[in-house]
Amino acid sequence: MKRINIITGHYGSGKTEIAINMALKLKEQHDNVVICDMDIVNPYFRTNDAKEFLEQKGIRVIAPDYASTNIDIPVLPGDILSVFTDKSCYAVLDLGGDDDGAVALGQYHRYLKDEDYDMYYVLNALRPDTSNIDDIKALAANIEYMSRAKITGLINNTNLSYLSEPKHLADSMEFADKAAKALDVELKYITGTGEMLSALPDKAKAFELELFMKLPFDALA
């Protein structure tokens, strides 16, 4: 994985779960790992919700003063600059959904343009607004325009929440390949729980997720 890993895509596609898991994976290989919650759109189900857990794992969490604070307007913390100035750190930047969320990255263009980064577009083919190639292309173009950054890879995270079946992911592979081709990028990872990944014929790109965003009626909550 590269030093800077940016997670973008349609809202509700699983960006935050992937960002958290990617930070954990980076931590296995590097000492200095930071995750930035750059979501300026969505007040619920955020990276910051897993802050305590991530910090226990030795991962630095940078989050905006927004949800669950007394500030109603999201402000990106100055700390985010440290991702670009401290070249020894490995970072995951979790953007908000759609182009509305990707806009938060734009102001860092002057730093990002000299970096070798990856920006992953997360796809859930069972999200109705990204279930055809034209919509995906349009959204990806808007995200690139607003973020002033280039999408470099696709992550297929197709799932149906608690009704997910392994075949949902396996059946979406053909579509995910098409989407990657349409965006002119490589399909980098296929993500899901261990069970979801079990039906994949080719597991070379499989990336197993542990899920952190829990609903309040989950028995363990």
């Binding site: 509700g12 999200r127 009704l163």
Partner: peptide, 8 residues
Amino acid sequence: MGNKVLMK
């Protein structure tokens, strides 16, 4: 999967 989709 029927016609189920994942929505907010």
